[in-house]
Design a protein around this nucleic acid. Sequence first.
DNA 1: AATATTGTTATCCATACGACTAAGTATAAA
DNA 2: TTTATACTTAGTCGTATGGATAACAATATT
Lengths: 114, 114
Amino acid sequence: MDNNIAALDSVFHALADPTRRAVVQQLARGPASVSELARPFDMALPSFLKHIGVLEASGLIGSEKSGRVRTCRLKRRRLAAAERWFEEQRALWAGRYDNLDNLLETLNGGENES
Amino acid sequence: MDNNIAALDSVFHALADPTRRAVVQQLARGPASVSELARPFDMALPSFLKHIGVLEASGLIGSEKSGRVRTCRLKRRRLAAAERWFEEQRALWAGRYDNLDNLLETLNGGENES
DNA sequence: AATATTGTTATCCATACGACTAAGTATAAA
DNA sequence: TTTATACTTAGTCGTATGGATAACAATATT
């Protein structure tokens, strides 16, 4: 039931950058080499490689080198773990019956502010 | 259909810290004052207030001051937006029919590695 | 064998982050 | 009216982050 706090730290930190989220998004479509992944970005390769390093350190992606090309692929475990964190917060919220907002919401299944 | 990139940046960055996630978690149970929220943490108040500031800047929480006490409450919008990002990635992944892992998964609905 | 591709390592740099202390403000309690 | 409470502001400090260049290594291509 532990959320592996340090892991969530590194996963959310990894996702807090648009370049890295775009890489995850691309890898969700399938594996790709470093240079393929880097192509859309106006950034020096070593800079980009750092992003790959952050993603790999967070466990969000994995990679293996064959010949001179390193192929990256998404690892869904950590992504799923992070998603689960949100579900837990929703569960906590759902457990609240001390405010009108929530009462109204549970009555009609609607969404509302705050 | 835009994910509001900058907003996701700040939301994920806000969530990349255990103190801030704990605050969100507490606020999911209901509103609380700054000092109530700060109590569990071994941290100087000004340091803690910075975390509150980061959370508020990200839009994850809101606050209002009445008398000398500032009351914070969770705002679910951004939390929901972040959660949606994960769903989008899963949708992309689900759209893949180019690998055996995924084929097997769609056949039997099971979970597997990477 | 020479050249091009693909990644890697080593530095460097400016800015942002997360923690602190010290000192101040505003409101409530005694 | 003094004192305690609940923040708030300002400024410091060490480390991490995200970008860059330069130089290197390893593998394909020609």
